[in-house]
Amino acid sequence: MAEIEVNWSRTDLIDEAEEVVQHQTKQQKTKLDKTSGVVIEEFTEGRVKVTKVNVDKQGSEEIGKKEGVYVTLSVPTLTIEDENGFEQLEKSFVKYLDEIHKDVDIKKDSKVLVIGLGNKTITPDAVGPFAIDAMQSQHSDNPNDHFIMYAPGVTGQTGFETSDFIHALVEKINPALVLVIDALATRGSSRLCKTIQITNTGIHPGSGVGNQRTEVSKEVFGVPVTAIGIPTVVDATVIIADAVEKVFRSIAARVQEKEKPSSKLSVTSWTPDSNARVDLNVVKPIFGEWSTWSSEDRLQLFEEVLSSHPERLIVTPKEVDVWITKYSLLVSDTLFKWMKNRSK
Rank of each mutant, 00 (worst) to 15 (best):
Q300D: 15
P205S: 05
I115V: 08
Q138I: 03
T237E: 13
D56W: 02
E215I: 14
K326V: 11
V127L: 03
K91C: 10
A151H: 00
L184G: 09
F130E: 12
E42F: 08
Q138T: 03
E67I: 01
P285T: 05
H139V: 00
N84M: 08
R213M: 05
P143Q: 06
I63N: 05
I40R: 15
Q22I: 06
C193G: 04
L335E: 01
L97S: 02
T316N: 09
M1N: 01
E99L: 05
R187M: 10
K340W: 04
N341Q: 15
E62V: 03
S189E: 09
D105Q: 10
K194M: 02
I239Q: 04
D109Y: 14
R191H: 00
E171N: 13
S269G: 10
T35W: 02
V71A: 12
K31W: 14
T155P: 05
P261I: 11
T316K: 08
L329G: 06
T186M: 02
T72G: 01
P285F: 10
T201Y: 08
F248E: 12
C193A: 03
F130T: 09
V20L: 13
E311L: 14
L313D: 10
S307Q: 15
T121S: 12
V6K: 05
K264W: 04
L177H: 10
I148H: 05
V209H: 01
I14D: 05
E219S: 07
D33T: 02
I80H: 09
E311P: 11
V233R: 01
G153F: 00
G210C: 06
D33H: 15
L73G: 00
N142T: 09
L330H: 00
I100E: 06
T79M: 01
V225A: 02
N142Y: 08
S266C: 10
E19I: 11
G288T: 11
T25G: 01
Q24P: 07
V112D: 04
E41F: 03
E311Q: 14
N341Y: 12
V234W: 03
R187Q: 12
P285M: 09
L177K: 07
I63Y: 07
K65I: 08
K108T: 11
R312S: 06
I251T: 06
S332G: 04
Q22L: 11
L184D: 05
T35C: 10
G85E: 03
A168K: 13
E90V: 09
G64K: 05
F93P: 00
V220C: 08
P310D: 08
P76T: 01
S308K: 15
R213C: 03
S269I: 12
S308I: 09
S9D: 11
R312G: 07
N200S: 04
S189Y: 08
N142Q: 14
F165R: 10
V223L: 05
A227L: 05
G85W: 08
